[in-house]
Each structure stands twice: as structure tokens, then as C-alpha cells.
Simulated scan of single mutants.
Amino acid sequence: MSAGTAETGTTTEWLGQVNEHDKVIGQVTQDGAWAWRLTVRGINACVVNSQGELWIPRRTEHKRMFPGCLDMSVGGHVDRGEDHLTAFGREIREELNLDPDTVMWREIAAFSPYRTGLSMFMRVYEIRTDQAPDFNPDDFTEAWWLTPQALRRRIEAGDPAKGDLAELVQRCHGDQLT
């Protein structure tokens, strides 16, 4: 959850609107960005163990978008005034109760919606640990350690997944992790 302005008891998430060169040109609410298909920034991360398995959680049913779906280990928008790295740190603290200063992580990809068809400018990070995160129960209900192949099979068998999950895993991890 992001800091924002309260409107009738809810929190409005403000994002930086960016142009085709990933330069901030204004601000927009998260709802406005989705409604008008405006370009914004986001981050995703996968927790990966020493066996090459991804920690894949299921989103809670009360999530407005993709409720009950399999998801990346961490994901979120870059809030107004943030950069990708700041958003990554905020999101892993909020969703996984992890401190970016105490875990091994690295950036593994940067995507443009103009070259990939993904929904936003996105940075993807990898967190290396054999310990399952102590996830925030407001974000996730359960999780599994899955190989990219096992995740693909679950999605193909009909397990609901966030819209870009399969594509992100394929682009970032293919069939094998290194």
C-alpha cells in the first residue's frame, strides 16, 4: 500500500506518468492510469532458492486486480517521486517483511511497454534465499516453491495467474535458472 491522499476513507495511489522514453511528464492516480491506459512505472521481483525454484504466492481474494491469482514474489507501482530502486525496497518490506540491506538481490531485467507489450516500464529483481518469506497476509494467502516449468504447467492447467506472470517468468528465467 502506498502513501497517498485520503478520499472518502480510501487511499489514492499517485504515480508518475512517463513518456515513451521513461521520463516523468506528470502525475496520475493508479485508477486513472489503468482507465486511460497511461504509461507508468512498476517493479517485480522473484525470490529464488538454491534449487532454482521460484517462490510463487497467491494474491488475496480482496485484491481489486487479479484477486486469488498466482503472482510474482513481489510487485508494485513506482509511486510519484520514487525511482524503481526505492519502490523495490518499499515493496519487499511491505509484502515480504524483508530488508533489502540484509538479503542478496540483483536487478535482472528492465522492460519497456513499447518494445515488449507489457503494461508499463518495469524493472525486475531477483532475491536469493532458501528461506520462504514471512509474507504480509493482506497481500498473499499461500505460496509454493516452483520451478519455471512447474509454474507454467499450473497456469496451463487453469490455475488463475496475474496477467503478465507467465511472460515475466519466461523472459527472466526461461526454463532454467542460473
Rank of each mutant, 00 (worst) to 15 (best):
A150D: 12
L98C: 08
L38F: 15
R59W: 06
E156Y: 09
T178P: 12
W144G: 03
C69E: 05
S73K: 04
K162V: 09
E7L: 15
W144D: 04
L98A: 05
R80Q: 13
W105C: 05
A3G: 15
A150R: 04
R106G: 03
D99K: 08
A45W: 00
A35G: 09
V40A: 02
M104F: 12
E167R: 10
W144R: 07
A6C: 09
W55F: 13
R37N: 12
L38T: 14
V28A: 07
D83C: 13
T39L: 01
T86V: 07
R80H: 13
P148A: 11
T141N: 09
A33E: 04
N136S: 12
P57I: 04
Q149S: 10
G163A: 10
A132I: 00
M1P: 10
S50P: 03
Y114N: 02
D175A: 13
T141L: 13
E95S: 03
R37I: 03
C46N: 09
G4T: 11
Y125L: 01
E94P: 09
L118K: 00
T10L: 01
M1N: 13
A166S: 04
I56H: 07
R59K: 12
Q30N: 14
W55D: 01
V24N: 10
V24S: 12
L96C: 12
C172W: 02
P113V: 08
L165I: 00
M1T: 12
D164N: 09
G117W: 02
T116F: 02
P160H: 12
L96G: 06
T116C: 01
S2A: 15
M1L: 14
W34E: 08
I108H: 04
N49M: 06
P148L: 05
N97W: 11
G89A: 14
V48R: 01
G76L: 08
A45G: 05
E53R: 15
Q176C: 11
R171I: 02
T147P: 03
V47W: 03
S50K: 05
P57D: 04
E7H: 14
S112V: 04
G163Y: 07
W34Q: 10
T5H: 15
A132N: 05
N97F: 10
P137R: 14
V40E: 02
Q27N: 15
Q51N: 06
Y114F: 08
W55Q: 02
R154N: 10
A109W: 01
G75Q: 05
Q17G: 07
A150H: 08
D71V: 01
M104D: 15
H77I: 10
E53K: 13
V78E: 03
A161F: 06
T12A: 13
F66R: 06
G4M: 11
R58K: 11
T8N: 15
L118G: 01
E95P: 01
L15T: 09
G174L: 00
L38P: 11
D79A: 14
C46V: 00
F88A: 02
G117V: 03
E7I: 14
M65Y: 15
G81S: 15
T8Q: 15
R80C: 13
F140E: 09
P67R: 05
D99L: 06
P57H: 03
M122H: 00
D164V: 02
Q51S: 05
A150Q: 10
R59N: 12
P100G: 09
R59I: 03
